[in-house]
Amino acid sequence: MSAPPPPDPFAAAPTDSRYGPVADHARQYAASGGADGHDWNGAPTLLLTTLGRRSSLPRRTTLIYGCHHDAYIVVASNLGADLHPDWYLNLRHHAAARIQVHGQLLAVHARTATPAEQPLLWDLMAGIWPDYDAYQRATQRPIPTVVLQPDFRHMPAQIAR
């Protein structure tokens, strides 16, 4: 007899961002199956669910995204703060994540863009959200771009609208 598969760590209800407007946006996005909340201030957004680096529990936030080839691209700007955002630190510890784009739920594998990829991906994202350039000027840390590559081996069910 084979052992049962391990439980899905993303099955538990996620904890939303501690920042009220971001948490409200995430809940609105999720509740509407992405119909309400995908477009935010003229930019496309997705829901990112990571696993907490200490708790291993699901943590959810909304992020502006772009697409490059078959991957989704996000920026760990933290509005130009000197510290990386929690979601980025979580991804550095657990690269497996989930995203929701409109009503589509995808398993992804996250990685920081390589130095060779960074200029192209930064330009892509600054074209979508020009404030990223101001955020970079506001901090001493290099702001990473993150590649979210769909992982078709672990594809969850689609979101019902």
Rank of each mutant, 00 (worst) to 15 (best):
D39F: 02
S32Y: 06
H102D: 15
V74Q: 08
Q136F: 05
V108H: 02
A31K: 00
P58H: 04
D36P: 03
P58E: 09
R141N: 05
R27L: 02
P142E: 15
P7G: 00
R59S: 14
I159K: 04
Y19F: 14
I128H: 05
Q140D: 15
L63V: 09
D36Y: 03
A110F: 12
W129S: 10
Q118M: 14
T15H: 07
Y88G: 07
C67D: 06
G42T: 02
P5A: 10
M125I: 00
D131C: 01
A157I: 05
N90A: 12
W40V: 14
G20R: 12
G66C: 12
P44E: 03
F10T: 09
G52L: 06
H154N: 10
H68G: 03
Y88F: 15
P156C: 02
A110C: 09
T61F: 02
N78V: 00
N90E: 07
M1W: 11
P58I: 05
N78D: 05
W129V: 14
P150C: 13
H68F: 05
G37D: 00
L120R: 11
A11P: 00
G66A: 13
T50D: 10
A107G: 01
A81N: 04
A11Q: 08
G127S: 12
D151P: 00
Y19I: 14
A3G: 12
F152T: 10
I64Q: 12
R111V: 04
P119S: 01
N90H: 12
L63Y: 09
D123I: 03
S17T: 07
A43C: 10
Q100T: 14
P85M: 04
N41A: 08
I73E: 12
L121C: 04
A134E: 07
P14I: 10
A12P: 06
S2R: 05
G127Q: 06
D131W: 01
Y132G: 03
L51I: 06
R59H: 13
T139F: 09
W129H: 15
P5M: 01
R141M: 06
R92T: 13
Q158R: 13
V108G: 00
L57Q: 13
A3V: 12
A35S: 15
L106Q: 07
I128W: 06
Q104I: 11
A95H: 14
L48G: 09
N41Y: 13
E117D: 03
H93G: 07
Y29E: 00
C67N: 12
A26P: 09
T145A: 14
T45W: 10
A138F: 07
D82Y: 01
L48S: 10
G34A: 09
V74W: 09
P6M: 02
P130Q: 09
R153E: 13
T145D: 11
A71F: 04
S77C: 02
H25A: 12
A110V: 09
Q149M: 12
P21V: 00
A107D: 08
P115F: 05
A126G: 01
G80I: 08
W122E: 05
C67Q: 15
P9I: 09
A134L: 11
P21E: 10
A30M: 14
I99Y: 11
Q158C: 11
A134Q: 11
D131N: 08
L63S: 10
W122F: 15
W87K: 11
G20Y: 07
L51K: 08
G37S: 05
